[in-house]
């Protein structure tokens, strides 16, 4: 690959030495920063997870005590894990289906599609706190949704945010609204890359509508769908702000996800060791789910090369 060594054979060594020295300069800020702000915290997180580590006060080594407490004794850990899984199972498919639907809808035949895309993308970039507050108002008993339902259909809706059965659905709905614009653009980018010749050939062969979508388009953009699915699952296992702001984790513990459990454990109950152990269990869950997806992808993701 490298050809420059042949350019000036006599001064090769001094040039190399200078390049090495300067490379060191180029790489140092990143290496130093990553060491201090990623590698060190990761190491520290391992240590903390085997200590009783309050925010202030004495620390004490307790081995796997934190992990054991989480798995056998903590009242909120398993509900939080369940909530994170339920959220992910509901959120990811709806997000992907809506995103793909919009990406397909806003194709070349819609003039002004760029404006539509901006509209659907806006909540992705506005602060999630603001988005959640807006939805909190919409979902109030006398808010927009219930107000319209009662005055148009005479139908009183449940109080979504405090209802055992509806709170999680409300959190998911708000999250899909706020988040799917990103996947819409990811899939739009993939659709715009489709080779026109292939689509023409399929059309000549009589592929239309649903069949065209299922047999031609989806397989062709399956790498992008896979990418979107992997990233969306990872981010939905990390959900925090939406339930924290919309429902406060309630009613009871029915919408506390893992990250909120970790946050509460660390900074409300000030038990950083237990929180660190919880974070590692979350990490293991994320790695496991992601690894599983990469194993299953062979069955449905088609790479061209």
């Amino acid at each position: 690959m490298r050809t420059e060594s042949s350019i000036r054979p006599p001064r090769r060594n001094s040039l190399h030495r200078r390049e090495r020295r300067q490379a060191f300069g180029f790489i140092t800020p990143a290496v130093a920063g990553l060491s201090i702000f990623t590698v060190m915290p990761v190491g520290l997180a391992i240590v903390m997870s085997v200590f009783d580590w309050p925010i202030f006060g004495e620390r004490e080594f307790i081995g796997f005590g934190n992990y054991i407490e989480l798995l056998t004794d903590s009242p909120d850990f398993w509900p939080a894990l369940r909530n994170s899984v339920v959220f992910t199972v509901l959120y990811v498919p709806v997000n992907l289906v809506v995103a793909l639907g919009l990406a397909l809808l806003l194709g070349p035949r819609i003039r002004g599609r760029a404006i539509f895309r901006v509209i659907f993308f806006i909540p992705v970039v506005t602060p999630i706190v603001a988005n959640a507050l807006v939805w909190k108002l919409v979902l109030q008993p006398d808010g927009l949704l219930n107000g319209l339902s009662t005055s148009w259909f005479g139908l009183t809706l449940p109080n979504f945010l405090v209802d055992q059965n509806w709170a999680m659905i409300a959190v998911v709905a708000m999250s899909v609204w706020a988040g799917m614009g990103y996947n819409m653009l990811v899939l739009t980018a993939a659709l715009e890359q489709l080779p026109a010749s292939l689509l023409e050939a399929a059309q000549v062969d009589g592929a239309r509508g649903w069949r065209m979508l299922r047999s031609i388009v989806v397989p062709l953009i399956s790498p992008a769908i896979f990418f979107a699915a992997v990233m969306t699952i990872i981010s939905s296992l990390q959900v925090f702000a939406q339930p924290q702001l919309l429902t406060g984790g309630g009613p009871g513990t029915s919408t506390i996800p893992l990250v909120m459990f970790i946050y509460n454990t660390g900074f409300e109950f000030q038990d950083l060791g237990l929180a660190a152990a919880g974070a590692w269990l979350l990490f293991i869950l994320i790695i496991g789910v992601t690894a599983m997806q990469f194993r299953v992808q062979k069955r449905w993701v088609h790479y061209e090369h």
Binding site: T38, P41, A45, A276, L282, I286
Partner: peptide, 9 residues
């Protein structure tokens, strides 16, 4: 490594 693992340490 997700941010959530890093925030505590």
């Amino acid at each position: 490594v997700p941010q959530e693992v890093l925030v505590i340490p």
